[in-house]
Write a protein that binds this DNA or RNA. Structure first.
Lengths: 188, 188
DNA sequence: TGAGTTCGGAACCAATCAGTTCCTAATGGG
DNA sequence: CCCATTAGGAACTGATTGGTTCCGAACTCA
């Protein structure tokens, strides 16, 4: 019944995610957000409550789209060395110059938004689990506990790379670093 | 000549650094910034140009105060194990709940402010040098190149910890992790 | 003491902020 | 075909944004 939407919700959410990801929460004004979504003010408030609510929805979307595909990539990897599977997470080619949305949300939004804080932690935990699984499958490290510790270290390294990457730091050879970190290669 | 300042510039800068550190750049409104500095509008624009300029000055202050004292702490450390010296960087007790100002600046401000990007990279490099020096002094690792690599890894871990800490993640035993990372202890 | 200079602070500025109201257009069910 | 319901969008809200203007007060130096 009644008049149907003229815009595609998923497409609008993608636009919102893109601009929040690129410019951050505060720096994204409502007009620019609407432009990115291809939606007018009236429709926006009818369909998505308000700015804070849609930000959270874009986080959820990042989880189901970007994080999930990363996990699938890790799961599908058949390389003998764990470092080979994990390396794509350290080459920012996929995320271009926007960095990692989770990292941005953690630093800018999470401190004064408990829901965002909880969601980002949940996503980080999913990533860690994916990393842990890669290590487990290849029996990297000397025990389950050791693998868990290595996964935690790799996860923190990932966020460190993402944070520093936003200031334009060039990433050198993480392939070699990961290999040595995971003891797949002797230090030179 | 002429009327002297009624406020202390350093004290005002400290107030500015504190609020930028805690709330970020965009989220700090001018009124709240002035309140934190204990300065009125007129005096503010006469003494500090504008919001962007004073933000950069607080970054410089963070460098000369916080970063420098961290480096001194690393330099003065006489513990036999490098991990013991580096551990304080991973316990957020010093920075409380504000995280690391450099990390915040990298993620929120650097992408659209080249001066801030360059400054944060410079500070990160200073930190890395401090870490490298700690490792060098104790001959951690198998070579100078290997020590440099480990310093780079520890630096990235530091920023990862800071970023994730802002979402409230609890930090577990980095002491043990650092020990094993720097090969000062065998994995369990 | 007077001239010159800077400070402090209130008032003011246009622009922008997120969010609301309200009316018209479009649609599907009965 | 008509009515209930919802979308679209312009216009408007009050609050807040960062920044400027201006003037009297306070001070130093000659």
């Amino acid at each position: 019944m009644a008049r149907p939407r003229e815009f595609d919700t998923d497409h609008a959410l993608d636009g919102a995610m893109e601009i929040f990801w690129r410019k951050g929460y505060k720096a994204t004004s409502l007009p620019s957000l609407l432009r990115a979504m291809g939606v007018t003010r009236g429709s926006f408030y009818k369909a998505f409550a308000d700015k804070e609510a849609i930000y959270f929805q874009t986080l959820e979307r990042y989880d189901t789209e970007v994080v999930s595909s990363t996990l699938q990539m890790l799961e599908a990897c058949e390389a003998p060395q764990a470092s080979t599977c994990l390396l794509p997470m350290f080459t920012q080619s996929g995320t271009a110059d926007r960095g990692c949305f989770i990292c941005n949300a953690m630093v800018e939004v999470a401190p004064n938004n408990p829901k965002v804080a909880a969601k980002t932690q949940e996503m980080a935990d999913r990533l860690k689990e994916g990393i842990r699984s890669v290590l487990e499958k290849r029996k990297v490290g000397s025990s389950t506990a050791h693998r868990d510790e290595l996964a935690e270290v790799v996860l923190h390294l990932y966020f460190g790379v993402q944070a520093m990457g936003k200031s334009g730091r060039v990433h050198e050879d993480w392939s070699a670093r990961l290999k040595r970190l995971l003891m797949e290669e002797q230090p030179s």
